[in-house]
Design a protein around this nucleic acid. Structure first.
Lengths: 361, 361
DNA sequence: CTGAAAGCGCTAACAG
DNA sequence: CTGTTAGCGCTTTCAG
């Protein structure tokens, strides 16, 4: 019987040339069948100790590593999850990504990263996802109904991170932005603030819209002046510009500014202090959302609503994995509450009686 | 001739059940051979317009997407690159990752993300890399000689990001930390600073060590006092603690502190201002490294050495791709210079004559 | 417990 | 330009 092939048989004349060893080579060397080798790498398989020993020895010798791609082809499990993230420079996302990575790695899955530069690029990005046969997807980007249904059609489990769909129930983990915004306004109002303003996130950010809406509604509920809203883009400069705009008319200047995220709040505070010489929080209260690391720095010590990123990421990973394992599909939404962080950029106690003017302590 | 198989032939009784269409199904429906379908998805292939049209039609109808995994199996190109990153919370890395992602996506490659929680976990992380048959690796983590040679043995192109190996020349893109540190010290010394101190990065960070070494050597070269060095871990708190330690002995307190990165510098400044009531930069100059976004904020406006992250990431991606395409292996190291940012946390002009004491302006 | 055989979905010669 | 024919490296029945 002629040998199956006339391969190089990993001769030692080619020390560092490519073409790594296959299970076949290992089988050859170990004098067992190729399927025996395969079994040695499958957790619950039944292999005799001696066979296993021989295989392991050959494996060492040939530097054999199973080819995950080939395996995926037949098992229909790639152990790959796609993570869709819009903007890693958003400071909030790296934390999420890091946490997700940790979670998935501990479950033996790898992350295929998809950063979406512009919302318009998302379509082709999504096509890429199919190609790689990922087992599931975590999306922290804006997704349209079409996109979501497409995932469904392809039978790919999907969990949205901090996003939901108005038109359809989807698996998602979110943080209750409205609740957070309402708490924030309530606390500020209780401390006597009367003239609210909002530096909002961009219109295409659902999270941002919710924060703005929640805050605005609560302000109105409390019978206070309609808050002035200026739009930002979640970046530092937006906070700076936002304040400038709000300060154009000094007469109606706000005494409390709610910003769509921490970074804008920081920009706003910096502009207030360095450009307008406004004392925060004495003359002006500023608050943000997210609780990113810089918000905790002494220089800012921001009043904010911290999102439980770790818990949320963990929940997202859990949900996705359970979806992957048992394709049960009754969408679940897990809602977390943000944690109110008092910080030091808002006056929260000692409401000053509006009628009286007291300056001394 | 009996038909090749008795497949479900994508009957319409299973609307959203799994098992997506294969090139075979498409071929069937289009009435062409399976290889014809394959050709339609290969850029430079020769297919008649009508064949292509029929295939495309069938493709649409069946929602066909080529399986990248199966393709990789035979082409030996996965179009996957592994990116190894230690610590996404380092603020500097998200920027790098984002840039790398942009670069690779534009070249049709996807990023498989490997975050390494602890240095000890790196071994198994690396094994994972082999399994996925990545075309190349970008490592922004500490790698031992063994690891690097292992990559070489497996014939996987590797580019180090901001790292090199003492024992061996490797493809790498780095930023000249020593040069940067020397410039920094020179500028500070020229402005009359005499008592330098360093809050260094962790000992296992080569970059950190170089920054410290470069600074220290230059200080000594200039005939100044041996700088006190305290160790940090690249985080905010390390900057705070660092300053506390340096202030223990007020008599020999430094007048210039060089921090291993921006975040520690910010911590240091915040501690100086808020805890010690030290005026930065009037009484104390503080500088950092990296030029991360928060360093540009008005509240800090840090004196720092900005790394050209974009250029570096671009270079790294380029190098890796060229390594992947033509396995030429004469290691190249691309060294970039950091850009000195004056900022406002260091006194850089008006050197105060050391003998005289003047306080008024 | 083990080997043989049949593919997973795709690409790549090779004849027509 | 097109179909046929081999596999890529692995898992998985199915008989022994």
């Amino acid at each position: 019987m002629a040998s199956k092939k006339n391969l190089p048989v990993t001769s030692e004349v080619t020390p560092q040339k490519k073409r790594s060893a296959t299970s076949y080579d290992v089988a050859m060397l170990a004098g067992v069948s190729q399927s025996a080798v395969s079994r040695c790498f499958k957790p619950g398989a039944s292999v005799s100790p001696e066979t296993r020993a021989r295989v392991l020895k050959a494996t060492k010798e040939l530097d054999y590593i199973p080819n995950a791609l080939a395996r995926s082809l037949i098992t229909r499990r790639s152990n790959l999850v796609a993570v869709l993230i819009s903007n890693l420079t958003n400071l909030y996302y790296p934390e999420v990504l890091s946490e997700l990575s940790k979670q998935f790695v501990s479950k033996g899955m790898r992350i295929l990263l998809f950063t979406v530069p512009h919302e318009s690029d998302i379509d082709q990005t999504i096509t890429q996802i199919w190609q790689y046969q990922v087992d599931g997807v975590i999306a922290a980007t804006r997704l349209s109904l079409e996109h979501v249904t497409e995932f469904e059609r392809h039978g790919i489990p999907l969990v949205l991170y901090n996003r939901t769909l108005a038109e359809k129930s989807v698996d998602a983990v979110v943080c209750d932005q409205i609740e957070g915004a309402r708490i924030l306004v309530s606390r500020l109002a209780a401390a006597g603030h009367q003239r609210f303003a909002i530096i909002s996130g961009p219109t295409d950010s659902v999270v941002g819209q919710e924060r703005t809406r929640g805050a605005r509604e609560r302000v109105l509920e409390l019978g206070l002046r309609e808050p002035q809203v200026v739009m930002g883009h979640y970046d530092y400069q937006s906070g700076v510009n936002g304040l400038r705009q709000l300060m154009k008319n000094r007469a109606s200047a706000p005494d409390a500014i709610i910003c769509g995220n921490d970074i804008m709040a920081i920009g706003c505070i910096d502009a207030a202090r360095h450009e307008f010489r406004i004392d925060v929080p004495k003359m002006l209260s500023v608050a943000g959302f997210d609780g990113v690391e810089p918000s905790t720095w002494m220089s800012h010590n921001l009043t904010t609503l911290r999102q439980p990123v770790q818990k949320m990421a963990q929940a997202a990973a859990e949900m996705l994995l359970s979806l992957i394992d048992n394709h049960t599909s009754s969408p679940e939404k897990r809602v977390f509450s943000a944690q109110f962080i008092e910080g030091g950029t808002s006056r929260l106690d000692h409401p000053v009686p509006p009628a009286t003017k007291k300056e001394q302590k």
